[in-house]
């Protein structure tokens, strides 16, 4: 059976769903950041697969995927720095216990 565009899109959807579930249902802030990375990667698969099918001459989706990787690297650097700062202040990175702004 040949691999079509739909195969890649289904893979992307499955990866995004796993990442979303982990980001919603885990306590550890580092795990939540890892699941965010999985969701970024799922979006990248969809970009690259669609650009190969739809716009192979200009590769716009691959350019977009490169920008997504750049922004994800910036996000994970700042996010992990925030996690470290929170750990230093409160001695925990359990996302359910970091409730300073909760009413």
């Amino acid at each position: 059976m040949a691999i079509t565009l739909n195969h890649y899109l289904v893979l992307s959807a499955a990866l995004f769903t796993i990442g979303l579930y982990g980001a919603l249902a885990k306590r550890n802030a580092v795990t939540i950041l890892m699941c965010l990375e999985l969701m970024f990667n799922a979006a990248n698969i969809a970009f690259v697969a669609l650009t190969r099918a739809v716009a192979p001459q200009v590769l716009t989706g691959q350019v977009f995927a490169l920008f997504v990787i750049t922004v994800a690297a910036a996000e994970v650097a700042v996010g992990l720095a925030i996690v470290l700062a929170v750990y230093r202040q409160r001695r925990t990175i359990d996302a359910t216990e970091i409730d300073l702004l909760k009413w």
């Binding site: 769903t17 979303l20 579930y21 919603l24 885990k26 306590r27 359990d94 996302a95 359910t96």
Partner: peptide
């Protein structure tokens, strides 16, 4: 660990 959204999160996913 899991938080209290383990069931609802799975349903949403």
């Amino acid at each position: 660990e899991w938080n209290q959204l383990r069931g609802p999160g799975l349903l949403l996913g």
